[in-house]
């Protein structure tokens, strides 16, 4: 039985007359990675700050690593939480090693870990250079090393891959996967949707402080019932006609055709098209994370209007 790391029930937070969060429920167990998605101002950062204990909720209950994050005894829990804020610029005049040593001291972590961590994020060569000479990606990696100090049980990452090149992004997700296997729970806030879905175990889409959808990706796919795209090559129009599938064709080239089908038609398509001898290419694609995200946001009409954005 895995332990619950974060538990939120009917969480409300308002700043003056603005309701930032309107009743959020969430349970995150160890080893789970939650993708938290939503447009700017949807309440993602507020949710993270509540979990970090930076302020108290207006209403509702929250437990982080078995503590109320605002309680005086929460310092111990904070030792086990790693956080990477969005847009942090570290002390420019210090070297990467000095920055990380400072944070390690504040977390009461053995300073010998600092060099190992810097090596893990690929900053070993640059660790004695001042942070002001670092590129955006290097700063982000320093931030990650900072968040990973002291083998955290809970990791909160706000836009962690912004500014990282594809290789660094890949390496970053590998570290996340590693932490996940060690039982670390991760909350990942990101706008960069492609590539994220392989690494998250659950997702939550928020808008205007409310949860629009929550669950595993396959649960949400089923719930949303978005069409599946089937790409084929080598099948003629006549053949599709014969199989009664001509109505599903959405795009056609000389030799290839794309079909858009319902969720429950997967089996039928496979049975009918796959045996065709002329078939040279066959590919079924489920709705991507972007499609799901857009689906839930537009379904509830909760895309912000222009006035709200400005």
């Amino acid at each position: 039985m895995s332990k619950t790391i974060v538990k939120l029930a009917q969480l409300h937070k308002s700043f003056g007359s603005v309701n930032a969060l309107n009743g959020i429920d969430l349970e995150l167990k160890e080893g789970e990675v939650l993708g938290l998605f939503g447009h700017n101002g949807a309440g993602k950062s507020t949710l993270m700050k509540l979990i970090l204990g930076l302020f108290a909720p207006t209403q509702g209950s929250l437990q982080v690593l078995g503590h109320d994050p605002m309680a005086p005894d929460a310092a111990k829990a904070r030792q086990q939480i790693g956080y990477l804020p969005e847009n942090v610029s570290f002390y420019d005049q210090l070297t990467g090693k000095e920055v990380l040593t400072y944070f390690a001291r504040l977390k009461q972590i053995n300073e010998t870990r600092v060099t190992t961590l810097l090596d893990e994020v690929g900053l070993k060569e640059a660790m004695n250079r001042k942070v002001k000479t670092y590129s955006k990606g290097m700063r982000q990696r320093l931030g990650l090393a900072q968040a990973m100090l002291g083998s955290p049980k809970l990791l909160l990452l706000d836009e962690p891959t912004v500014g990282l090149d594809p290789i660094a992004t890949h390496e970053f997700y590998q570290s996340v996967d590693k932490l996940k296997q060690q039982g670390c729970a991760v909350i990942l806030c990101s706008h960069v949707l492609p590539g994220v879905e392989r690494h998250i175990s659950k997702l939550m889409i928020v808008s205007k402080g409310k949860t629009l959808a929550a669950g595993t990706i396959s649960e949400l796919r089923q719930q949303a019932n978005l069409p599946i795209t089937v790409k084929t090559s080598g099948v003629s129009d006549a053949q599709f006609e014969q199989l009664g599938l001509a109505d599903y064709i959405v795009r056609k080239d000389n030799n290839s055709a794309d079909l858009s089908i319902e969720h429950n038609m997967q089996r039928t398509i496979l049975d009918k098209v796959a045996p065709l001898a002329s078939l040279t290419h066959f590919e079924m694609t489920h709705a991507s994370l972007e499609n799901l995200y857009l689906h839930y946001l537009t379904k509830t009409n909760s895309l912000p209007t222009l006035e709200e954005v400005s």
Binding site: R78, P85, V88
Partner: peptide, 10 residues
């Protein structure tokens, strides 16, 4: 932005 980060520390 470092103040926000420091305050999440013990």
């Amino acid at each position: 932005g470092t103040l926000l980060l420091l305050l999440t520390y013990p």
